[in-house]
């Protein structure tokens, strides 16, 4: 297997031109899938026999919760890549991804609380998954606050990478520890190994919205990374050319 693609990722110029052709299509595909999944889930999927129509929140809650965790996983991997190989794009990725992940965690918390009210009768319980998403949100906010309060770019890159890697190591421990506190949440809707227990007309729209949200976020992050590259490389010639030629 050739590792050329991996080395190319280290070049901001190559990455910028590559991301220009991918960001918009990914974003549009994401929007369409998300729209299909949500409309299908909201209007056409049958109501749950226990929870009634309130279960329709699942079509936004589960995708954002999955994204919130995947984003952190990606942050940790990027941090590791930066600490080991000093790859230039990794800190750009961390910087662009952290706010997106924080918003995902926030939506998961709010939509989960709203779902909890009709289902469990309270807005909030100190249950394993809720607590771990809350911690995830705090971890994201910590990374963002750290990046905003340091001035030196070298230090910002290193600090964000260090804290992402530490968070990645700590996240399984946090999850294990909060499971020891009691749990009220229903089990995971999707697992890779088992067939879902829901009927297909209920989980198919969910699949659409999950895939849609992944593409949506990928597009957004590519755009944010472009902005970050422009900011960081503003002295190089290709950026000057790029800005003058396509000023939007």
């Amino acid at each position: 297997m050739s590792w050329a693609w991996f080395h190319k990722l280290g070049s901001p110029k190559w990455f910028f031109s590559w991301s220009k052709s991918w960001a918009l299509p990914l974003f549009c595909v994401g929007c369409v899938c998300l729209f299909v999944g949500l409309v299908w889930g909201l209007a056409f999927a049958p109501a749950d026999y226990q929870q009634g129509n309130s279960f329709r929140i699942i079509y936004i809650h589960v995708p954002v919760a999955m994204l919130a965790q995947s984003c952190y996983l990606a942050l940790g991997v990027a941090g590791f890549v930066f600490l080991v190989w000093q790859m230039k794009m990794a800190p750009v990725f961390i910087k662009s991804m952290a706010p997106v992940g924080a918003v995902m965690a926030l939506i998961a918390l709010v939509s989960g609380a709203i779902w909890g009210k009709p289902t469990w009768g309270t807005w909030w319980v100190w249950d394993a998954r809720l607590t771990s998403v809350l911690v995830l949100f705090l971890l994201y906010m910590g990374i963002i606050a750290l990046q905003n309060s340091l001035d030196d770019l070298v230090l910002v890159n290193k600090a964000a990478a260090v804290i992402s890697v530490l968070g990645l190591i700590n996240l399984p421990i946090i999850k294990y520890s909060v499971v020891l506190l009691e749990t009220l949440h229903q089990g995971p809707t999707f697992t890779l190994t088992k067939k879902p227990e829901m009927p297909p007309e209920m989980w198919l729209p969910l699949l659409f919205s999950v895939i849609g949200l992944y593409c949506f976020v990928a597009g957004l992050v590519l755009w944010r990374m472009q902005t970050e590259i422009l900011k960081r490389e503003h002295r190089s010639n290709w950026v000057k050319q790029e800005v003058m030629e396509h000023g939007l």
Partner: peptide, 9 residues
């Protein structure tokens, strides 16, 4: 509940 969750999202 459903619409406020979706509205916020």
């Amino acid at each position: 509940y459903v619409w406020s969750a979706y509205g916020f999202s």
